[in-house]
C-alpha cells in the first residue's frame, strides 16, 4: 500500500504500488542508455513496450495519456524536421530550398523516437507516482537527507499555492496599469517580469518563515523515525530486474539484426 495514498493524488494500479525510487531508477537508466543509441529501431521498440506497459499497468485515463503526449510529440517532430533538413549527406529530396538527406532522416527519426520513448516512460512514472511518496522513498531508500527531503516537500506545498498567488499578483498589478485602446491592460515582457519579481519576493519571504517552522518542528535533530515507510519488496526488485533484462534483450536483438547505431553517426 502506498504511503501517501490518503492524499488521493494517484489512482491505484499495479504500477502505482511499486516503489517510487525503483521506478525513478528504471526511468533514469533507460534514458541514459538511450542517450547513446542512435538508430530508430531500438527507441521505437522501447516506445511500444512502454506504451503497452502504461496501457496495461498504469490505469491512466486514455484522455490523460493522449494529452500528455502532445508536448513531446511536438518536440519530437521539431527534432525530426530539423535534422532531416539540416544534415549533410546523401540527398533524398532536393526541391530548393528544401533538401532532405538520408542521414538526416535517420538521425532525426532516431532522436524523435528517443523523445517518444522517454516521454511514454515519464508518463507512466509521473502518472503512477505520488510526489510525496517519492520524496519519502528517496529519503528512505536513496539516502536523501531529511533536510533536503522536507525542504522539497515544503516547496511542493508552496508550489500548490503558486498558481493562486500568481493570479492574485497579476490582478493586483493589472489594476494599476493603464488601459490600452481596446480596454484591456497590457501584459508584455515587462509586466511578466514585474509580476515574476513580486512572486519571487513574496515566496522568498514565505520560504524564510517556512524554514523557521520546519526547524521549530525539530527537523535536523538527528536520528529520526519514519512513521509510515514506503515499502520496498521483492516485487520491486523483480520489476527492476525484468525491465533491465528486457532493455538488454532489445538492444542485443537490434544489434544482432545489424540495425543498431551508436553516436558515431553524428560525425
Amino acid at each position: 500500500m502506498n504511503a501517501s495514498s490518503a492524499l488521493g493524488a494517484v489512482a491505484p494500479s499495479p504500477l502505482a504500488r511499486r516503489n517510487p525510487t525503483v521506478k525513478l531508477a528504471i526511468l533514469f537508466i533507460v534514458s541514459l542508455v538511450l542517450l547513446v543509441v542512435f538508430d530508430p529501431v531500438t527507441p521505437a521498440l522501447l516506445y511500444l513496450l512502454g506504451l503497452a506497459a502504461v496501457l496495461g499497468f498504469a490505469r491512466l485515463p486514455m484522455r490523460t495519456i493522449v494529452l500528455a503526449h502532445l508536448p513531446f510529440v511536438g518536440f519530437a517532430l521539431g527534432i525530426l524536421v530539423v535534422n532531416a533538413l539540416s544534415r549533410p549527406g546523401e540527398v533524398l529530396v532536393d526541391l530548393p530550398p528544401i533538401r532532405v538527406t538520408v542521414e538526416g532522416l535517420l538521425v532525426g527519426s532516431a532522436l524523435a523516437l528517443r523523445t517518444m520513448a522517454i516521454g511514454i516512460l515519464s508518463i507512466g512514472f509521473i502518472g503512477t507516482t505520488d510526489p510525496v511518496a517519492l520524496m519519502t522513498s528517496l529519503h528512505q531508500h536513496a539516502r536523501l537527507s531529511a533536510r533536503v527531503t522536507f525542504a522539497v516537500l515544503a516547496g511542493y506545498r508552496m508550489l500548490q499555492q503558486l498558481p493562486r498567488e500568481w493570479q492574485v499578483i497579476r490582478q493586483a498589478q493589472s489594476v494599476r496599469t493603464p488601459f490600452r485602446e481596446n480596454g484591456a491592460t497590457r501584459f508584455g515582457i515587462s509586466e511578466f517580469g514585474r509580476a515574476a519579481f513580486t512572486l519571487l519576493v513574496v515566496s522568498l519571504r514565505r520560504g524564510e518563515r517556512m524554514s523557521q517552522s520546519l526547524e521549530s518542528r525539530g527537523l535536523g535533530l538527528g536520528a529520526r523515525t519514519v512513521w509510515r515507510p514506503v515499502p520496498l519488496g521483492p516485487a520491486d526488485w523483480l520489476l527492476l530486474a525484468g525491465t533491465l533484462g528486457l532493455l538488454a534483450l532489445v538492444i542485443a536483438g537490434v544489434g544482432t539484426l545489424g540495425l543498431g547505431l551508436g553516436p558515431g553517426i553524428l560525425f
Binding site: S4, A6, L7, V132, A146, F150, L153, A154, Y156, R157, Q160, R206, R209, M210, S213, L214, R217, G218, L219, G220, L221, G222, A223, R224, T225, V226, W227, R228, P229
Partner: peptide, 23 residues
C-alpha cells in the same frame, strides 16, 4: 507558512519522527 507539508497527518507525524518517537 505555519503548515509546511502537504497532509495534516504528515505535518503532525513530522514532529514526532524528528524526535525519533517510535512509529
Amino acid at each position: 507558512s505555519a503548515v509546511c507539508l502537504p497532509g495534516v497527518e504528515q505535518e503532525l507525524a513530522f514532529v514526532l519522527e524528528n524526535r525519533a518517537v517510535s512509529p
